[in-house]
Nucleic acid binder design. Structure first.
Lengths: 268, 268
DNA sequence: GCATGAAATCACGATTTCCTGATGCTTTCC
DNA sequence: GGAAAGCATCAGGAAATCGTGATTTCATGC
């Protein structure tokens, strides 16, 4: 967004702001004893497409995290009661995968290290710019997801499921046999669903650096994948080609079809 | 606590031009050999919430900039001694991040290009409207900050959104298909919204250095972009052409069309 | 050696993207 | 008023990329 306002209690330029489309960017829990700051972060981050929860203390945060599955936690480092560091430590033990970002005032270098040791993923110094914060949040979420992928988490998009650990792929619930290269290709595309992946990158990932311009391999293998996974290989729903760029795996449900999706609208 | 920020991008306040001086919009240096114009700019911009410094020559400006950390410099292009262009060049070398706006008289088309190539972010033609000037200043400041925070993130202006990572562009919420060159062109223009970009720069960025004078490519592609993104390609709202210079992507909400605007100002 | 499945090639028509050149409008300058 | 320069518009063709089907190479286990 073009809006670089620092966090303030007021919101930002309405004219320039467009609500991120339908799907949430992720579930965030804002933990701070100061209600004003919580509120402010809440509205701003919400308007940027995150789902937001609030907690006013470490204890409350931990309790909430046992119930709701958050993707990331913004944790004030300096709170009465169970402090940020200790909360962070316990949270990390509780939820090994969650992204934790600590918030603190500027001149507190030592606790920064402490926080990171306690399992925080990143550290943001107040005062901060909204843009920086969201960038950090996104980066942390991305990393968390990358970890999840690298582990062998299953991904399911539309009626296609992939189970990396077992090298298993299901289409409409029924297993589909894929050769190793086919599998790697699909896996990479699905774990980066929605993003266009360049030819070079796919070749690099699946075949190795030295194959970076064997685009014809991709053609052959994409064709195979489409035959095996698409209803109609001629007009693919999942495995789209990005002309002159590469390929992209999309979720036909969330993909912006030309027709309409609920509410991508500027907010007031 | 959240508001130690040196500068705030102004929140949305179209009508209200006067602001309480508590929080500065940014520190500006006005450089012109004409004292009357300096004075006039000083009072007007100050009343709009900017902190103002003055210099009467290029040499003085450079000296001042070594001491005070300005956010932007308004630089008269035509000054005795070290001229505006040369001052701009040195200033840019000295302070790579600062926003530089050149002031020039109308009939000096060539030097505008020269100025932009020398590192200016924008130029304003005397006599100018105050509203236009502040809009330009804000655009340049916004852009400078965006660079500082180095976001490769989504940008939304008016009802056009661009998501670089996904190579996705939405117009009024609906996806628009762009070819690679079209996309790159739009992306550069939008990430420099409000600022004029020279033909040479656009060609350089999208096609490569060796294409720096194929202005006709730009015509073709700007046309395509307008067809795809403007309500009425004949009288574009976003993708404006800067005759003799290049193109500029503007936010129709924040940039009044040149046609009519209130408050004419100093100097004739 | 042979059958098998995977991977790598090749060729060609179809499609998409990109470039080119012609034409006419507008502004500017003589 | 007329020439010149800059720009928008349009159509069409060159060039790059894609999908497709068929073929060849390679490794493996029988």
């Amino acid at each position: 967004m073009l809006d670089h306002n620092p966090v303030t209690t007021n919101s930002y330029n309405p004219a320039n702001t467009v609500q991120t489309p339908t799907k949430s960017e992720g579930k965030l829990l804002v933990v701070d004893d100061e209600a004003a700051l919580r509120r402010s972060l809440h509205t701003t981050l919400f308007s940027m497409g995150f789902d937001i929860g609030e907690a006013s203390s470490g204890e409350e945060a931990l309790a909430l995290c046992r119930i709701v599955k958050y993707d990331a936690v913004l944790l004030d480092i300096n709170m009465p009661g169970k402090g940020g560091i200790e909360t962070c430590r316990e949270l990390r033990r509780l939820m090994p995968r969650i992204a934790i970002l600590m918030l603190s005032v500027n001149d507190d270098e030592e606790r920064k290290v402490e926080a990171l040791e306690a399992g925080a993923d990143d550290y943001v110094t107040k005062p901060f710019h909204m843009r920086e914060l969201t960038a950090r949040i996104r980066a942390a979420l991305r990393r968390a997801r990358a970890v999840a992928e690298q582990g062998d988490d299953a991904v399911a998009i539309g009626d296609i499921e992939i189970y990396p650990a077992r090298r298993l792929v299901l289409k409409a619930g029924k297993p589909v046999h894929l050769t190793p290269k086919e599998f790697d290709l699909l896996h990479y595309l699905m774990t980066h669903a929605g993003l266009p992946i360049t030819h070079a990158r796919l070749l690099h990932v699946v075949w190795g650096v030295e194959y970076a311009n064997q685009v014809e391999y991709l053609r052959t293998f994409m064709r195979q994948l489409r035959k095996k996974l698409e209803e109609n290989a001629g007009s693919p729903q999942y495995l789209l080609t990005e002309s002159h760029i590469g390929y992209r795996f999309v979720d036909p449900a969330s993909a912006p079809r030309p027709t309409a999706s609920p509410s991508p609208v500027p907010e007031a």
